[in-house]
Design a binder for these strands. Structure first.
Length: 256
DNA sequence: ATGGCTCTCGCGGAGAGA
Protein backbone atom coordinates (compact mmCIF):
# COMPACT_ATOMS: atom_id res chain seq x y z
CA UNK A 1 0.00 0.00 0.00
CA UNK A 2 1.33 3.39 -1.02
CA UNK A 3 0.44 6.31 1.26
CA UNK A 4 1.42 9.91 0.61
CA UNK A 5 1.27 13.56 1.60
CA UNK A 6 1.39 16.59 -0.68
CA UNK A 7 0.97 20.32 -0.13
CA UNK A 8 -0.44 21.33 -3.53
CA UNK A 9 -0.36 25.14 -3.03
CA UNK A 10 -3.82 25.74 -4.50
CA UNK A 11 -5.78 22.75 -5.77
CA UNK A 12 -7.54 24.57 -8.64
CA UNK A 13 -4.18 25.72 -10.00
CA UNK A 14 -2.73 22.19 -9.61
CA UNK A 15 -5.46 19.95 -11.08
CA UNK A 16 -3.78 19.04 -14.36
CA UNK A 17 -0.49 18.55 -12.53
CA UNK A 18 -2.21 16.38 -9.90
CA UNK A 19 -3.66 14.18 -12.65
CA UNK A 20 -0.14 13.53 -13.98
CA UNK A 21 1.19 12.69 -10.53
CA UNK A 22 -1.69 10.42 -9.49
CA UNK A 23 -1.54 8.56 -12.80
CA UNK A 24 2.21 8.13 -12.68
CA UNK A 25 2.61 7.17 -8.99
CA UNK A 26 -0.76 5.53 -8.25
CA UNK A 27 -0.84 6.22 -4.51
CA UNK A 28 -3.56 4.41 -2.56
CA UNK A 29 -4.09 7.15 0.03
CA UNK A 30 -3.15 10.83 -0.31
CA UNK A 31 -3.23 13.62 2.28
CA UNK A 32 -3.54 16.99 0.53
CA UNK A 33 -2.86 20.41 2.07
CA UNK A 34 -3.35 24.05 1.06
CA UNK A 35 -6.40 23.44 -1.09
CA UNK A 36 -7.33 27.16 -0.98
CA UNK A 37 -10.97 26.44 -1.84
CA UNK A 38 -14.25 25.95 0.03
CA UNK A 39 -15.86 22.51 0.40
CA UNK A 40 -18.50 23.21 -2.26
CA UNK A 41 -15.81 23.91 -4.88
CA UNK A 42 -13.88 20.69 -4.28
CA UNK A 43 -13.66 18.82 -7.64
CA UNK A 44 -15.03 15.44 -6.53
CA UNK A 45 -15.92 14.44 -10.11
CA UNK A 46 -12.37 15.09 -11.29
CA UNK A 47 -10.95 12.71 -8.69
CA UNK A 48 -13.72 10.15 -9.12
CA UNK A 49 -12.74 9.86 -12.79
CA UNK A 50 -9.19 9.10 -11.66
CA UNK A 51 -10.48 6.40 -9.32
CA UNK A 52 -10.43 8.28 -6.00
CA UNK A 53 -13.00 9.20 -3.38
CA UNK A 54 -12.34 12.26 -1.21
CA UNK A 55 -13.18 13.68 2.19
CA UNK A 56 -12.60 17.41 2.50
CA UNK A 57 -12.16 20.17 5.07
CA UNK A 58 -11.81 23.31 2.97
CA UNK A 59 -12.18 27.05 3.32
CA UNK A 60 -12.20 30.00 0.95
CA UNK A 61 -8.79 31.29 -0.20
CA UNK A 62 -6.57 29.75 2.45
CA UNK A 63 -5.59 26.48 4.13
CA UNK A 64 -7.80 23.43 3.50
CA UNK A 65 -7.01 19.70 3.71
CA UNK A 66 -8.41 16.55 2.08
CA UNK A 67 -7.85 12.80 1.94
CA UNK A 68 -8.05 10.84 -1.31
CA UNK A 69 -8.43 7.05 -1.35
CA UNK A 70 -9.53 4.33 -3.73
CA UNK A 71 -12.64 3.34 -1.74
CA UNK A 72 -13.97 2.58 1.73
CA UNK A 73 -13.04 5.97 3.13
CA UNK A 74 -14.88 6.81 6.33
CA UNK A 75 -14.71 10.35 7.70
CA UNK A 76 -13.78 10.44 11.38
CA UNK A 77 -12.68 13.96 12.39
CA UNK A 78 -12.95 17.38 10.75
CA UNK A 79 -10.90 20.18 12.27
CA UNK A 80 -8.57 20.27 15.27
CA UNK A 81 -10.45 20.64 18.57
CA UNK A 82 -9.22 23.89 20.09
CA UNK A 83 -7.47 24.92 16.88
CA UNK A 84 -10.36 25.98 14.66
CA UNK A 85 -9.49 29.67 14.99
CA UNK A 86 -6.46 29.01 12.76
CA UNK A 87 -8.57 27.70 9.86
CA UNK A 88 -9.20 24.34 8.17
CA UNK A 89 -6.05 22.37 8.96
CA UNK A 90 -6.88 18.80 10.06
CA UNK A 91 -8.94 15.89 8.77
CA UNK A 92 -9.02 12.21 9.76
CA UNK A 93 -10.49 9.19 8.00
CA UNK A 94 -10.47 5.43 8.50
CA UNK A 95 -9.22 3.92 5.29
CA UNK A 96 -7.34 0.82 4.21
CA UNK A 97 -7.21 -0.44 7.80
CA UNK A 98 -5.42 2.75 8.87
CA UNK A 99 -6.50 5.76 10.82
CA UNK A 100 -5.20 8.41 8.45
CA UNK A 101 -4.88 12.06 9.51
CA UNK A 102 -3.47 14.88 7.44
CA UNK A 103 -2.58 18.34 8.75
CA UNK A 104 -1.50 21.73 7.48
CA UNK A 105 0.31 23.20 10.47
CA UNK A 106 0.46 26.99 10.83
CA UNK A 107 3.42 28.85 9.36
CA UNK A 108 4.01 31.40 12.13
CA UNK A 109 5.40 34.06 9.76
CA UNK A 110 8.15 35.55 11.99
CA UNK A 111 9.31 35.15 15.59
CA UNK A 112 7.80 38.53 16.51
CA UNK A 113 4.47 38.07 14.68
CA UNK A 114 1.44 37.10 16.76
CA UNK A 115 0.99 34.08 14.47
CA UNK A 116 4.17 32.54 15.90
CA UNK A 117 2.58 32.17 19.33
CA UNK A 118 -0.60 30.94 17.68
CA UNK A 119 1.43 28.32 15.81
CA UNK A 120 2.84 26.99 19.10
CA UNK A 121 -0.64 27.00 20.66
CA UNK A 122 -2.04 25.12 17.65
CA UNK A 123 0.70 22.50 18.10
CA UNK A 124 -0.18 22.21 21.79
CA UNK A 125 -3.78 21.49 20.75
CA UNK A 126 -2.58 18.90 18.22
CA UNK A 127 -0.43 17.15 20.84
CA UNK A 128 -3.35 17.11 23.28
CA UNK A 129 -5.71 15.79 20.59
CA UNK A 130 -3.28 13.05 19.59
CA UNK A 131 -2.59 12.11 23.20
CA UNK A 132 -6.22 11.81 24.27
CA UNK A 133 -8.15 10.52 21.23
CA UNK A 134 -9.32 6.92 21.01
CA UNK A 135 -6.99 5.66 18.32
CA UNK A 136 -6.50 2.79 15.91
CA UNK A 137 -3.15 1.11 16.65
CA UNK A 138 -2.22 1.57 12.98
CA UNK A 139 -2.37 5.35 12.68
CA UNK A 140 -0.71 7.84 10.34
CA UNK A 141 -0.27 11.57 10.85
CA UNK A 142 1.07 13.24 7.72
CA UNK A 143 1.23 16.68 6.20
CA UNK A 144 3.04 19.99 6.08
CA UNK A 145 4.40 20.56 9.59
CA UNK A 146 6.25 23.83 8.93
CA UNK A 147 9.03 22.78 11.33
CA UNK A 148 12.55 21.62 10.37
CA UNK A 149 13.31 18.69 12.74
CA UNK A 150 17.09 18.98 12.86
CA UNK A 151 20.02 20.75 11.20
CA UNK A 152 20.34 17.93 8.63
CA UNK A 153 16.88 18.85 7.34
CA UNK A 154 17.80 22.44 6.42
CA UNK A 155 19.98 23.52 3.50
CA UNK A 156 21.60 25.99 5.90
CA UNK A 157 22.34 23.27 8.45
CA UNK A 158 22.84 24.48 12.01
CA UNK A 159 23.29 28.08 10.78
CA UNK A 160 19.49 28.22 10.66
CA UNK A 161 19.04 27.19 14.31
CA UNK A 162 16.86 29.72 16.12
CA UNK A 163 15.21 31.08 12.96
CA UNK A 164 11.49 30.57 12.34
CA UNK A 165 10.86 26.87 11.57
CA UNK A 166 14.10 26.03 13.40
CA UNK A 167 13.48 27.23 16.98
CA UNK A 168 13.78 25.13 20.12
CA UNK A 169 10.15 25.94 20.97
CA UNK A 170 8.95 24.55 17.62
CA UNK A 171 11.23 21.51 17.82
CA UNK A 172 10.04 20.84 21.38
CA UNK A 173 6.47 20.62 20.01
CA UNK A 174 7.45 18.27 17.22
CA UNK A 175 9.33 16.06 19.68
CA UNK A 176 6.36 16.03 22.06
CA UNK A 177 4.21 14.82 19.17
CA UNK A 178 6.69 12.05 18.34
CA UNK A 179 6.72 11.07 22.03
CA UNK A 180 3.02 10.27 21.68
CA UNK A 181 4.21 7.12 19.90
CA UNK A 182 4.89 8.32 16.37
CA UNK A 183 7.89 7.77 14.10
CA UNK A 184 9.13 10.03 11.30
CA UNK A 185 9.00 7.38 8.58
CA UNK A 186 11.48 9.15 6.28
CA UNK A 187 14.07 9.12 9.10
CA UNK A 188 13.31 5.46 9.83
CA UNK A 189 13.99 4.73 6.18
CA UNK A 190 17.06 6.99 5.80
CA UNK A 191 18.58 7.90 9.20
CA UNK A 192 21.47 10.02 7.90
CA UNK A 193 20.44 11.28 4.45
CA UNK A 194 19.67 14.87 3.59
CA UNK A 195 16.53 15.30 1.50
CA UNK A 196 14.20 18.27 1.24
CA UNK A 197 10.46 18.46 0.58
CA UNK A 198 10.08 22.21 0.03
CA UNK A 199 12.01 24.78 -2.03
CA UNK A 200 11.21 28.48 -2.40
CA UNK A 201 9.89 29.44 -5.83
CA UNK A 202 12.23 32.42 -5.84
CA UNK A 203 15.84 32.73 -6.82
CA UNK A 204 16.30 29.27 -8.32
CA UNK A 205 16.20 27.68 -4.87
CA UNK A 206 15.37 24.21 -6.23
CA UNK A 207 18.35 24.09 -8.56
CA UNK A 208 20.63 25.57 -5.89
CA UNK A 209 19.47 22.83 -3.47
CA UNK A 210 18.19 25.47 -1.03
CA UNK A 211 15.41 23.42 0.54
CA UNK A 212 13.87 22.29 3.81
CA UNK A 213 12.35 18.99 4.94
CA UNK A 214 9.05 20.04 6.52
CA UNK A 215 6.59 17.52 5.03
CA UNK A 216 6.43 14.24 6.97
CA UNK A 217 4.60 10.97 7.17
CA UNK A 218 4.51 9.97 10.85
CA UNK A 219 3.32 6.50 11.85
CA UNK A 220 2.69 4.43 14.98
CA UNK A 221 4.76 1.33 15.83
CA UNK A 222 2.32 -0.86 13.89
CA UNK A 223 2.85 1.24 10.74
CA UNK A 224 6.62 1.51 11.17
CA UNK A 225 6.86 -2.27 11.50
CA UNK A 226 5.29 -2.60 8.03
CA UNK A 227 7.45 0.13 6.41
CA UNK A 228 9.14 -0.84 3.15
CA UNK A 229 10.52 2.56 2.13
CA UNK A 230 9.93 6.30 1.84
CA UNK A 231 10.56 8.53 -1.17
CA UNK A 232 10.46 12.29 -1.38
CA UNK A 233 9.18 12.70 -4.94
CA UNK A 234 11.39 15.60 -6.03
CA UNK A 235 10.75 14.97 -9.74
CA UNK A 236 7.28 16.37 -9.07
CA UNK A 237 8.70 19.61 -7.71
CA UNK A 238 9.75 20.23 -11.33
CA UNK A 239 7.60 21.64 -14.10
CA UNK A 240 5.77 18.82 -15.95
CA UNK A 241 4.51 19.25 -19.52
CA UNK A 242 4.70 23.02 -19.06
CA UNK A 243 2.60 22.83 -15.87
CA UNK A 244 3.83 24.65 -12.77
CA UNK A 245 4.63 22.48 -9.74
CA UNK A 246 3.75 23.21 -6.14
CA UNK A 247 6.63 24.54 -4.05
CA UNK A 248 6.34 21.25 -2.06
CA UNK A 249 7.24 17.79 -3.36
CA UNK A 250 4.97 14.84 -2.52
CA UNK A 251 6.25 12.32 0.04
CA UNK A 252 5.38 8.64 -0.48
CA UNK A 253 5.70 5.71 1.96
CA UNK A 254 5.32 2.08 0.96
CA UNK A 255 3.59 -0.04 3.64
CA UNK A 256 3.36 -3.83 3.51
C1' DA B 1 20.68 43.69 2.93
C1' DT B 2 16.86 42.83 0.02
C1' DG B 3 14.14 40.21 -2.96
C1' DG B 4 13.98 36.96 -6.24
C1' DC B 5 7.86 33.41 -7.36
C1' DT B 6 3.12 31.75 -7.16
C1' DC B 7 -1.36 31.61 -5.34
C1' DT B 8 -6.04 33.96 -4.22
C1' DC B 9 -9.36 37.62 -4.82
C1' DG B 10 -11.07 40.10 -8.35
C1' DC B 11 -9.68 43.45 -11.97
C1' DG B 12 -5.44 46.44 -9.01
C1' DG B 13 -2.43 45.48 -6.16
C1' DA B 14 -1.97 43.34 -1.75
C1' DG B 15 -1.46 39.50 1.53
C1' DA B 16 0.29 34.95 2.43
C1' DG B 17 3.41 31.49 1.96
C1' DA B 18 8.22 29.31 4.36
Amino acid sequence: MRISTWNVNGLRARLDFARLWLTDRSPDIVGLQELKLPDDEFPHEFFNELGYQAVVHGQKSWNGVAILARDGIELKQVGLPGGEDMGARLITAEVGGLEFTTVYCPNGKTLTHEDYGRKLAWYDALIEHWRTADRNTAAVLCGDFNIVPQALDSWRGSDADGDIFHTDAERDRLNALLQCGLHDLYRVSAPDEQAFSWWDYRGGAFHRKHGLRIDFILGTDAVRDRLQGVQIDRDYRKKQDGLTASDHAPVIAEIA
